[in-house]
Amino acid sequence: MELVSLFIGLTFVNNVVLSKFYAVCPLLGVSKKPKNALNMGYAVTFVIVIASIVTHILYHFVLVPLEITYLDLITFILVIASLVQFVEMFLKKTSPEIYKSMGVYLPLITTNCAVLGVALDNISANYNLIEATVAGLAVSVGFTIVIYLFATIRERLEIANVPESFKGTPIALITAGIMACALAGIAGLV
């Protein structure tokens, strides 16, 4: 039961984009087409879940026994970057169709704050392996939902009657602010 509340909490209430500000750059930068946003979401989900598991295992079974926990940041970023490179190469070799749809976004995920942020948060919150995996899954599902909704709204904002100084990024940010207000309203859920 705790896992379910952890999942819902991280997906909606403490949504990683709108409440913890982790993945704001892709939110504003990725294409305004909802289909591409969804593909970005799939790629991010894949990388974050695997990265949560791998970083957790490495931290608790390598860094802590050898007493080199001060290398956690360098370890995590190198592991995440290697993972992204490996996944991209793996997709290129085995499945061109999947690579065609979501492989384009893989290099961007290395500098995505969300992946590193989730890994660091799992460590500081002292989750065990199952909780870390669920947290990773929740964060990426939350990210995908928000980025998809945002892409659909931006599609409509393109043709809406927006004042000239607000066109483009400013109105997108204000929309994100209103979405964040909506999420803050369900803060008492978990």
Binding site: L78, A81, E88
Partner: peptide, 26 residues
Amino acid sequence: VWLALLIAIFIGTYIWNKKTPQPEGC
């Protein structure tokens, strides 16, 4: 030792990824 291992793995996967060509049509 751990740092050297990580850096070697990262550079290895990076170069490996660069060497594999993109599938046709992509």
